[in-house]
Design a protein around this nucleic acid. Structure first.
Lengths: 153, 153
DNA sequence: TTTAATGCAAACGATTTGCAGCGAA
DNA sequence: TTCGCTGCAAATCGTTTGCATTAAA
């Protein structure tokens, strides 16, 4: 079943309508596995059809969330746009961030995946997105900022 | 060393100034271990001093982030305010969310903590915040929404 | 036909910024 | 005496919403 068909079924169940605009949004979202923002979608879609409305995209997003077809991904700060991902396939995000200098280390630990699956199984969940977000202070920033005050923490 | 002293040192290092307003913000943030929003702070502080400016708080936040004294915590959606936490003590957030109905299960798995610490040690990081965020679809929503289409995923 | 969906523009709400006066160092 | 900091008001920017029109079902 294609994403469009899946969404159409979901809409029908809610007594909502499949429109050309909604179809285009879904096709655009599932055309790649990359994450996206509303601006990304609008920009890509307006390249083909300049009349495509921004608010239409904003109105489709919550429906796709409810349908379990996309996820919110980002931890947003300031006035950054929300980032989404489609749910075709399970995504793993495991990273450790230094909150001082912003360094990000990505890692992929099989033990983590095993535990995540174990937990999901325990509760009967079908996992679509795993985020392991470790925040701390990297070695060099520890020296510069904390110096010998570590014991005070 | 108190949070205020710590922040003062950080400011001095950057050739910035410790002011009465900044002192009050830090004291307010470290008066509890709870998370907070800018509105929380402004409201609490204006109870004592109605002239306290909102933009002053907004301008202190990035300094405290850089100083490693607070963290951004929330995964914000829509126009929700950003949530922060002070870094006195390590915080663990482990939860699994159903993206369809919004159910949130909090769990505390010692194995996860062990692995998180192991990873941090490997890279020399001083951990302050651990977030394990699992997103998926809960059993009852799987029935209602996916029904017998699971195989198509 | 009925009524949900669309595009546009205006409204919102959180966050940022320009500015003139203030006050740490 | 500097020049970073403050409160205020205005500006930004992502997101939401009212409305007249269009188009699924």
């Amino acid at each position: 079943m294609t994403p469009v068909e899946r969404f159409k079924k979901y809409l029908a169940k809610q007594n909502l309508r499949m429109t050309v605009e909604r179809r285009k949004v879904v096709e655009e979202i599932f055309s790649t596995a990359e994450h996206f923002t509303v601006s990304d979608l609008v920009q890509r879609m307006q390249a083909n059809d300049s009349s495509m409305g921004r608010s239409t995209v904003y109105r489709v997003i919550p429906l796709l969330l409810k349908a379990g077809m996309i996820f919110e991904v980002s931890v947003r700060g300031g006035r950054e746009e929300q980032v989404y991902e489609n749910t075709s396939g399970i995504r793993h995000h495991a990273h450790m961030t230094c909150e001082v200098c912003g360094e990000v280390i990505e890692f992929n630990d099989s033990e983590i995946h095993e535990i995540q699956e174990k937990i999901a199984t325990r509760y009967g969940y079908k996992l679509k997105l795993h985020i392991m977000d470790l925040r701390g202070i990297c070695p060099s920033c520890q020296e510069q900022i904390i110096s010998r005050e570590v014991s005070a923490w």
